[in-house]
Amino acid sequence: MCITFFKTARSSLDKYKLILLNNRDEHLLRPTREMHWHDGILSGVDEQDHARGTWTGINRNGRIGMMLSITQTQESKIPNAPSRGGIVNSFLNAHNTSDMVESLLIMAGIYNGFQLVCLEQNQFGLYEVRTLTNQQVENIEVCQWNDEYHVISNSPPSKPYQKAVYGKQLFSERLQYSDEMTVDEVFETLLEIAVNRKQCYPDAQLQFQTRNTHEYNRPLSAIFIKYPEGTREYGTRCHTLITIDQNNKVSVLERRYLPLESTWKDARFEFSINGN
């Protein structure tokens, strides 16, 4: 499971071109390297997967890719399906992202459930949003979204989990005056959203996709996932926060959980897109 929130500017008059929050939900002990620069990409790295991919990454041009799984039962998964782990890196490194996404579209059916979220600046310097979802949709296609506020989890945007519906309301309310906020104030607000534990349950879409028990599903229905002690070593283990202002200054904060130390650790990055 994962959930991502982002706000895209409507015009150059907005203070921030982009405000983004991503929660990564994963097995707590899955080997993962902290966010760092590698091959022109700033991201964490999933060290268990042979593709050494990521869930959220940004490159020097300000292009952002995010990978969210589409929740499915174990029985419905394709045995020996190719890894989804490297898809974000492929998008971030692509010379032509449209060609890359179209190629992925052709091959999408061979993967287990995924949702790729693509964020790129257009000729006016504003961020455009595309998604490609390969399950729980009538047609596998590239979709473009023009909303200002977006919240996407592990179901298609057209079939949102209840926590995504709740999260979008919370996100839009808390950031409606973001033009008046400093980066640190934006990050403080995003972190408050990131640790929200309200369980949005029952959830028919979540139940349909998991086909599991209420005890299993209830923790998954919150923005911040935490199972009762001793029941399941799975939950929210990383928050990624990004702001990009109208001068193309990028600020990034990763807050990740260190399970062996039972503590959280921050890493902060700042850079300018294209070195400007």
Rank of each mutant, 00 (worst) to 15 (best):
L92V: 03
N93L: 11
S98A: 13
D99P: 00
D99Q: 12
M100S: 03
S103R: 12
S103K: 14
I106W: 09
M107Q: 14
G109L: 02
N112Q: 05
N112T: 03
G113L: 05
L119S: 08
N122M: 02
Q123D: 09
Q123S: 12
Q123G: 14
F124Y: 12
F124E: 09
F124R: 14
G125H: 03
Y127E: 01
Y127C: 12
E128S: 08
V129M: 06
T133S: 11
Q135A: 13
Q136Y: 14
V137R: 04
N139P: 02
N139L: 13
I140G: 06
V142Y: 01
V142E: 03
C143R: 15
Q144Y: 07
N146K: 12
Y149V: 10
Y149S: 05
H150R: 11
V151C: 07
I152N: 02
S153K: 02
P157D: 05
Q162S: 08
Q162D: 07
A164M: 02
V165A: 09
G167K: 05
G167A: 02
K168N: 11
Q169E: 13
L170R: 13
L170Q: 06
L170V: 13
S172W: 10
S172M: 07
R174M: 12
R174C: 10
L175F: 15
Q176H: 12
Y177L: 14
D179H: 14
D179S: 15
E185P: 07
L191H: 14
I193C: 07
N196T: 08
K198C: 05
C200E: 15
C200S: 10
Y201S: 01
Y201F: 11
Y201D: 04
